[in-house]
Simulated assay, not measured.
Amino acid sequence: MRNRLSLLAAILAIVISCCACGNTSTTAESGNTFSIQDFTGRELSFGHAPQRIVALGNGEADIIYALGGNLVGRPTSELPESLAGLQNVKQIGTAHEVDLEQITLLRPDVVLGNNPMNTKDIPTIEGIGSKMLLTSANSVQEITQQIVLFGKLLQKDDRASELVEQINSQLAEYKSAVASNSPKVLLVYGAPGTFMAALPSSLGGNILELAGGVNIAADYPRLQSYPQYAQLSNERIVQANPQYIFIMTHGDAEQVKDSFLKEMSDNAAWNNVDAVKQGHVEILPNDLFGTNPGTRVMEALTLMRDQLSAN
């Protein structure tokens, strides 16, 4: 009850403040109004480049930070070293669980969320006087599209073009250097007791293919609730006999790895899988693979390529 009253009080304060301002500022900025279109096709108009930005994901925070934008709210999660400068920025939950009270108190111009996860939150965010811009990052290409879009949002198109050019030039080098003898790989996402196979339509799956790996789960039927992932099949994994198994997680790395190996070992043939015999079952860094790495996506691709060429 106390949290609800606090939220209502914060919203009321914003409404009163906006009424007191009148229409003067809107009229003054009307000549500078510009519009952008988010990944859902929604058009959002701004009177000026947003000065107060909330990001619900580390990838979005990373891009805004690289473009020189002002973040007043960031995800409630451990920050990678590259975002240490945001340590004191207010934490506002995640795309999975938005802390509306904290966001309301921050009075952001725009909230950067995930499509489709935060589609349901649009009316609520708009109800507190903010705009919600939705994007997704299911491939390296989508991350470059995020950079371009956020560049337009911040009126930093030149800087955005520089970042995209860096990624594209590195991609071109990778494509020309991909080996012909591509190893077979199982890419897993999960937590103890809950594991899914990453499909090529996921960011991790896209990075795997760009790095030269063959995704053994490419033809697995996708999950309805998580369309970039598929249910694991112990029998199909054993049959495909991957040379590498990589695990992505938000949780405790070793605990997740032990839980996965224990679950898979129910199949007597599991220990004959090449990845298991050769000790090629690895946890990938969660700041590069457990979430959207933003402008650091080429670090993830480099790490994946190095893993595939090891031993």
Rank of each mutant, 00 (worst) to 15 (best):
residue 59 G to A: 05
residue 142 E to Y: 04
residue 300 A to Q: 08
residue 173 E to V: 13
residue 164 V to H: 02
residue 167 I to M: 08
residue 104 T to V: 06
residue 199 L to I: 04
residue 276 V to Q: 03
residue 302 T to V: 10
residue 117 M to F: 00
residue 93 G to C: 04
residue 237 I to S: 00
residue 53 I to Q: 07
residue 128 I to S: 04
residue 75 P to C: 04
residue 46 F to K: 05
residue 285 P to D: 08
residue 218 A to P: 07
residue 200 P to G: 09
residue 38 D to W: 05
residue 121 D to S: 13
residue 18 C to L: 15
residue 30 S to E: 13
residue 196 M to N: 13
residue 62 D to A: 12
residue 117 M to R: 09
residue 136 S to C: 12
residue 172 A to E: 01
residue 179 A to E: 14
residue 120 K to Q: 15
residue 162 E to C: 00
residue 216 I to Q: 11
residue 229 Y to V: 09
residue 30 S to V: 04
residue 38 D to A: 06
residue 148 V to T: 13
residue 12 L to E: 14
residue 302 T to I: 10
residue 241 N to D: 14
residue 83 L to S: 05
residue 144 T to N: 04
residue 106 L to F: 04
residue 39 F to D: 11
residue 207 I to L: 15
residue 276 V to E: 02
residue 158 D to I: 10
residue 1 M to S: 15
residue 256 V to Y: 07
residue 50 P to A: 04
residue 206 N to C: 09
residue 209 E to V: 15
residue 135 T to C: 08
residue 97 E to A: 04
residue 126 E to N: 10
residue 298 M to Y: 07
residue 196 M to V: 13
residue 25 S to K: 10
residue 51 Q to K: 14
residue 162 E to W: 00
residue 213 G to P: 10
residue 201 S to K: 08
residue 53 I to N: 07
residue 311 N to V: 10
residue 190 G to V: 08
residue 252 D to A: 13
residue 122 I to H: 09
residue 145 Q to H: 03
residue 237 I to G: 00
residue 91 Q to T: 10
